[in-house]
């Protein structure tokens, strides 16, 4: 019987050992955290800048559309919380909606998680339109271009939205001029095709990494004003909120800063200094992601070396 070399043995390795190594590569960096640097990309910056430009304005609002269920919560939930935190901190009016039954509890959970630390009121600072059946998606989407109060009518508590404080200066996409769709599917495409093309509304995407490559062409053509891609996008946004929106002066009082690339370069945030874990979830996750990626690259290199060694051996035998 021919003696197996190390590469032959690896090719016959039980895949459950690989699962164990992957689990350890993720668990250890989570328990023993380190500060992996988060580089902020332009699509994320653009979303931040757009939202921040509405700070303190009562005649502007953003719409967050939750188009995902719990299966992709790990990637999308941290970005939703980061954006809501940004809005609550900078007094940007937020409207939320979902067209999937399974998205409703996630939408409520995101709002409740972010508002814990702020004195914000439903109907004044934010408003949840609640769950609307998917069959009404297009009717609602197009209807909001004319009159939101007519297209949606009631919020998730059954109140007529036209009577609410938050809607006093918000009529249609002219005021609700940014839609961010959080999706693990092509849902954002509908906003581009119908809301962007028909009404010229600014559309941004908070999407799972799987969907990112598909959406880059829309980013390049300007049909998406910005994009948060997976856990990395969420980590970038968390960082921007900490650097700019949450900036404090020397006495510890809130002192939000204007966006600047120079400040991003100079800023170094130690994760252990942020007390509340909900505001650094994505960045902690990216520590584990970094280690897991290095491990996968090593696996791919070893696998390829093994493949060529085995092929070379077969050629010699042949």
């Amino acid at each position: 019987m021919a003696k197996l070399n190390v590469f032959d043995r690896m090719q016959k390795l039980d895949r459950r050992w690989i699962y164990l190594v992957v689990a350890l590569a993720i668990i250890l960096p989570l328990i023993i955290p380190f500060n992996s640097k988060t580089y902020v990309t332009e699509p994320t910056e653009n979303v931040y800048k757009k939202i921040d430009s509405y700070a303190g304005r009562t005649d502007r609002a953003i719409l967050m559309c939750f188009s995902h269920d719990a299966s992709t919560m790990a990637e999308l939930f941290p970005m939703e919380v980061a954006i809501l935190r940004h809005c609550f901190e900078r007094k940007v009016r937020v409207l939320t909606i979902c067209f999937m039954p399974a998205a409703k509890p996630l939408m409520d959970y995101a709002i409740n998680t972010a508002k814990e630390d702020y004195d914000v009121q439903s109907g004044v600072d934010y408003l949840s339109f609640g769950y609307k059946p998917y069959s009404l998606f297009l009717i609602t989407l197009l209807g909001m271009g004319d009159d939101i109060a007519e297209a949606v009518e009631t919020d998730d508590q059954g109140r007529k939205i036209e009577n609410l404080e938050i809607m006093k200066e918000i009529t249609n996409y002219n005021e609700m001029n940014l839609v961010i769709d959080f999706a693990a599917s092509a849902a954002v495409y509908s906003w581009i095709v119908y809301a962007r093309a028909r009404f010229g509304v600014n559309v941004a995407a908070g999407i799972t990494a799987v969907m990112a490559a598909d959406n880059y062409p829309y980013l390049q053509s300007g049909q998406l004003i910005g994009m948060l891609s997976g856990l990395k996008g969420a980590a970038e946004y968390e960082k921007l909120v900490d650097i700019f929106a949450m900036n404090k002066d020397e006495y510890g009082n809130p002192d939000p800063r204007e966006f600047s690339k120079e400040i991003i370069k100079e800023s170094w945030i130690k994760l252990s200094d942020i007390e509340n874990r909900k505001y650094k979830t994505a960045r902690i996750g990216m520590n584990a992601q970094t280690v897991a990626h290095v491990m996968i690259i090593v696996f791919i290199i070893i696998g390829n070396i093994g493949y060529f060694v085995s092929k070379n051996k077969e050629n010699h035998i042949g």
Partner: peptide, 22 residues
């Protein structure tokens, strides 16, 4: 696309492990 897919799948696992461990 493949690179992003790997990142997405690992992210989902990280999310669950963050829940279990955290």
């Amino acid at each position: 696309s493949f690179g992003y897919t790997v990142m997405a799948r690992i992210s989902l696992l990280i999310g669950r492990i963050q829940f279990l461990v955290g």
